[in-house]
Design a binder for these strands. Sequence first.
RNA 1: GGGCCUGUAGCUUAGUCAGGUAGAGCACCUGGCUCUUAACCAGGUGGCCGCGGGUUCGAACCCCGUCAGGCCCGCCA
Length: 534
Amino acid sequence: MHWADFAASRLAQRGDSHIIATGITPSGHIHVGNMREVLTGDILRRACSDAGMNAELAYIADTADPLRKVYDFLDDSYSQYIGHPVGDIPAPDEKGRPDGDGTYADYFLAPFLAALDETGVECRVIDNYQSYKNGDFAENARKLCDAAEQVREIIERVSSRELSDNWFPYNPRGSDGSIDGVVITNWQWPYVHWVDQHGIEGKADIRTADGKLPWRLDWPAKWQQIGVTCEPFGKDHAASGGSYDTGKEIAKLLGYEAPMSMPYEWISLKGQGAMSSSKGITLSARQLLDIVPPEIMRYLIARTKPKRAIDFDTGEGLISMADEFERLGNSIPSLQDKLHSEEALKKRQRDQIEDTLAFWKYSQVVAGDSTASGSGISFSHLSLVAQVKQEDAEVWKSLSQTHGIDEKQPSKVLQERLWRMRNWVAGELFPDSSRVSIQEKINTEWVNSLGEDQIAYLQKLSESTTILENTESAINQWIRNTAQDCKLETKVAFNTLYNLYLGKDKGPRLAALLSALGKEQIIAPLTSTLNHLG
RNA sequence: GGGCCUGUAGCUUAGUCAGGUAGAGCACCUGGCUCUUAACCAGGUGGCCGCGGGUUCGAACCCCGUCAGGCCCGCCA
């Protein structure tokens, strides 16, 4: 059974209506790791719907969280905003100065939400800072402040850590707007009285956004307010004594049963380590979707159990995963037939087929549409054609010859695949091993190792270039017919030509490659090789 | 120091909760396609299931220990 269906079946035992929550603090570029959280939630939501339950995904933007530090991508002038809610401070401009349009939170949130939309994630966005302003936290904040000693006991016991004497279940903002270094002097509904690091005194109304609950309390308070029944979260929260453990007890204090947990592992970038904004190891959701088709991003998450770490390879690994996805799409009908046929399947086989079908189902950008995501063209082939053909029209023409697509009206999926492929090929993430590079110089060692029959073949090719037309089919005929004339095995002929042009034993469709090169470039290596042989 | 997660073929992994001959995909090899070999189709090679012990008729799975990687038990998410 697919992990999402399994989780849905456990949720079904709790009730038939569910709110799955997910959220992050928009303190910087929102990266692929965060994408896993949201996609995990979205796939679970679909699984619940498929199982006949009502299910909604709530995306909580933690905009009330304070700016922790001046990140590398920010100008030093941001130091004045440390401790201020990210939903309340200005966005950075292109130089990282706090002079951009809109809020800091929106600046990072907007592209991420757009990326979610592209990936087929359906969610209700909840702005946490706004929730504080609306007074949504008032009741829970009151209960927690009234039960301050009990709350302290829970956190100290469960996390086995000692809280400072002046710890209080509410962090008000001081006279400069920062929550850092503010000490509580008194609590009387609805005011928390404080003295800040400048020695200035004041009071915060907990029915407003004059401050916020500390994270370990903010979380369970939100569960209760929103009615969260399940939440995927990073493995850090899941560790014993971590925020989920304390959250469970705090929720009980608030008279609410904690949501079902769903811990997930990190995504790291292959060869670079864990995603970390501060170390500069990061791939934002936007950067990702500029090269990875959304259905393939979904596939990555859907096929991997949440507890398993993902080492994301944006190079060769992406090509092979995308090819796998394409093959999977082609095999769906036969898998379905196999599952429904009378043929006796072992349980293991059946499970495996069911899982595979689920991978495909949950990868679809449009839920329920099981045909739209396949493009019919493998990634590896598309990468080649995209490199060889500069004009899109030429790509469609080539694909119509090789794969029978409609040259005039390529599918939308395919068009999007191509622009992403072009972005990828143009950037640094594209793997060198898949780059097509024509040999600049002839490899004399290789030339000297050529057999008589191969030399005769090259000779014959060279003699017949004058009448050669620069089309794929003409070039293909030229290669094959000449080989036949020389009584050279086709296999050897191709091997020889791959070595001549690419310096490799194998390669992409040679006729396609050569026709894109142009006649002069076809002839030059032939001539220089024959000259070398004298 | 205390706790949690992960370790299965060269790579990605299923199976661990409910013990019953270790299953896939990629790569590789072979064959097929009077279209090419990085396209497509069929078949094949490849596993002391991290390691050591225990329970059992029987262990990848349960128990104890051990090694390796990651995470939490400060702030913050």
